[in-house]
């Protein structure tokens, strides 16, 4: 009985997830936990790049939103270019992951949340000068008060989860 109940709950969860285009781990492989250290290493490298390229800087974000420099547009634009070519190559040559798994891509269905949520996030981005990745990097750079911003962002995520069914999607 409990098993059936769990199954139903799991299904509902998948249902609700179909709206939510977060990065779902489809991998069926089960690895020991310490395999995750490779993501930690990659994160360390990205944290370095985030700080060195100043994308974590509040000043850079204001500059971008006032079109006063090409810097941020150059970074986002070239990152998308490299990402696009890589994804195209992976699809074209059906490249598998290092564990031999087929790499799967899922379409992100449109919903109005991308508009409303997008505008709200844009507002937060202009105020805090940070998107989620840079928040972690700003704290690491010694701005401990950004820990409050991160806690507030986690609260925002939680409140979204609470109100989700009542919001237009």
């Amino acid at each position: 009985m409990t098993e059936i109940k769990n199954k139903i709950e799991e299904n509902t969860d998948f249902e609700s997830r179909s709206l939510d285009t977060i990065c779902i781990n489809e991998s069926e492989l089960v690895h020991p936990w310490w395999y995750n250290f490779k993501y930690l290493l990659l994160g360390i490298f990205i944290g370095f790049v985030f700080v060195k390229s100043e994308v974590v800087s509040w000043f850079r974000i204001q500059e971008m939103f006032h079109f006063q420099s090409f810097h941020m547009y150059g970074i986002i634009g070239s990152a998308v270019m490299v990402g696009m070519v890589s994804v195209w190559l992976i699809k074209k040559f059906k490249v598998t992951s290092i564990y031999g798994e087929v790499i799967d891509f899922h379409p992100k269905p449109f919903n109005k949340g991308q508009i409303f949520g997008g505008l709200l996030f844009g507002t937060g981005w202009a105020l805090t000068g940070a998107c989620p990745g840079p928040l972690y990097a700003q704290i690491g750079s010694g701005f401990l008060v950004v820990g409050i911003t991160l806690l507030s962002a986690i609260t925002g995520t939680w409140v979204y989860g609470l109100l989700r069914d009542k919001l237009p999607h």
Binding site: C23, S152, T155, Y160
Partner: peptide
């Protein structure tokens, strides 16, 4: 700036289903 801004980052990204990395790049 710090608290309302942070809240909107968390609420907005989840409502939109992603942020600069998930939508704009990936």
């Amino acid at each position: 700036i710090i608290i309302v801004g942070g809240f909107l980052v968390g609420f907005g990204t989840r409502y939109a289903g992603g942020c600069t990395s998930g939508h704009a790049i990936m």
